[in-house]
Design a protein around this nucleic acid. Sequence first.
DNA 1: GTCTATACGACGATAGAC
DNA 2: GTCTATCGTCGTATAGAC
Lengths: 197, 197
Amino acid sequence: MPRPPLVSDEELIDRLSTLFRNAGYEGASMARVAEVTGLGKSSLYHRFPGGKQQMAEEVTRHLQRTFADRVLSPATRLDLSVTVRLRRIAANLRSFYGAGMCACLLETLTVETISTRTSEGIARAAGAWTDTFAALSREAGIAPREAIARAQDAIARIEGALVLARATGDTRAFERALRSLPVALTGATTDDTRSKQ
Amino acid sequence: MPRPPLVSDEELIDRLSTLFRNAGYEGASMARVAEVTGLGKSSLYHRFPGGKQQMAEEVTRHLQRTFADRVLSPATRLDLSVTVRLRRIAANLRSFYGAGMCACLLETLTVETISTRTSEGIARAAGAWTDTFAALSREAGIAPREAIARAQDAIARIEGALVLARATGDTRAFERALRSLPVALTGATTDDTRSKQ
DNA sequence: GTCTATACGACGATAGAC
DNA sequence: GTCTATCGTCGTATAGAC
């Protein structure tokens, strides 16, 4: 009769995700992994035969799912206006990133040397986020190509605000990025650089 | 009679800066440092008695100076209009960041565990950049508080575009961030989230 | 499935010769 | 000022008992 695991798979990947997000790939040493999960190293290699690389891959997948569920899910609430949906997404982003004080895997995992599989996962996550924002922008009447540009620009502003917050401790740019999200994706703009491209 | 160094101080800090920018603090192992500088480890500890931490501090200072000289210097060209100065700065940013494919110390050095002195240097560099942009914005007639907000937002957009480029390989958001820089700091905006703050 | 014990390399840093 | 040789520590990963 197989022995039940001390820590459920759900719990395990959840704690791993938190660690990888805040410490990055190289900062998340096996010692710290063992510490935050309460498991010995051998147990971890039993659950992740591929070692740290496999952990990074599964963390990437898990955070992408979590992001879709806990952040982007209002995007498909067709009963709400696009603006209201974006306001809800902004609120979700605020809590997901701890009001600007939490890092994003896009930033922490792209600095370090990681496997091709993991960086492909990161690229896919960025793509999914962009697609969601672009779809909302199109739904608000923005032309397809400009919708993609607006989506990328909005995400860039959010990510950059997180970088700035980590560097300076000032989270106001993050707050403004969230506040301006509905306008950035749906509103009129004085920025004529997009149409010229 | 003292023996002249194999590599000049200038050359040394320059190669170190390139390495730290692209590999980050933990990725810049002493082995790689020795490799790119052509010096042995002991020589490096002779020139940097404080070890890697001292290297990081001096790289931070050096890059801040370089950034001021090679990127932000048009800001004080009082003979040019603010818009023209910003276009020149945008061009400088493009070459400084390798058209979007080079990382920024703000991103790479804030992920990893570094000394307080170094992170203070990073914060100072971010502050200097913000101050320069905010001064230009004020010069264009923007109110002081909003000028700071615009400066932060413009920097966030640039930094975030670099993150996105590293994650996806798509540098178009970076290009747009540079193109819209003059308007972002000086022009009218439909973004009413700033004044509400 | 989890543990203790350990292998083995890479890390940052140092000693001492030249 | 630079080198070779080496230290101790921590990294990932594994072996084998329970």
